[in-house]
Design a protein around this nucleic acid. Structure first.
Lengths: 118, 118
DNA sequence: TACACTGTATTAGTACCGATAGTACAGTTG
DNA sequence: CAACTGTACTATCGGTACTAATACAGTGTA
């Protein structure tokens, strides 16, 4: 699951992995996350690294923590909605840049969509 | 021109500044760039930092260097075209992610465009 | 209560990056 | 030759990101 060739930090890879599982519906509300220690052993990394990943996920609203018990998946449509907004934000940023340089936004978007459909 | 509050490195800010000037047409083909040493003095920074910015601009095709003479703006439509492609790439990346999570691309794009028009 | 599990906090080591500095080299122009 | 261009290389300093080791703290249960 961890790709050491990948330049992205381990904690980020872990976070993204579970973010994906949750958004896709492979994990549901209140499902327990693996314990910090257990996952650290599995991934042959340090509990702190896992913890950093979990902290990130918590900040972004994907999981919640109960001291002494564990981490659990936070459910609801809010998650999907938040994720959608994240993507929307990025999209707006890029399009704003394009607009600054007088590019034709519609044309740009259509071209992009075209490349994906295939 | 340099914003020390900005977390982005100085050399990147310099590069972006001139990239913008060139793309917008404020600088034209074969216009001379300020000399490395001169610009360093102006910006109260180090010649090496400016050089790093110029090296970046050269790698990306925005300027060309003539040993002993200086750096000059590389012109032509290629630049605008390249920049457009850069943006297009980013756009495709984001939309691909959105698609993975079964988001409605058209809807997403329209929402983004809507936010910009204002 | 004791133990085994959970997460939390602190500190330390390592590595990398950005910026600066100094110095030396090389081509161009007048 | 002098004064300007860019180029190359090395060294250093400071900050920050990442990971690790270790100790601390809450929860649940036999």
């Amino acid at each position: 699951m961890i790709d050491y060739q990948d330049s992205r930090p381990i904690y980020e890879q872990i976070a993204d992995h579970y973010k994906r599982l949750i958004l896709v519906g492979a994990m549901n509300e209140n499902d327990p996350m693996p314990s910090v220690r257990q996952l650290a052993v599995e991934l042959a990394t340090n509990p702190n690294t896992v913890q950093k990943a979990y902290a990130l996920l918590e900040r972004e609203g994907y999981i919640y923590t109960v001291r002494g018990k564990g981490n659990f998946v936070r459910g609801g449509d809010t998650l999907v909605e938040n994720h959608k907004n994240e993507i929307l934000e990025k999209l707006v940023m890029i399009l704003k840049e394009a607009k600054e340089f007088s590019l034709n936004l519609r044309e740009l978007v259509d071209e992009a969509l075209g490349r994906i459909e295939k």
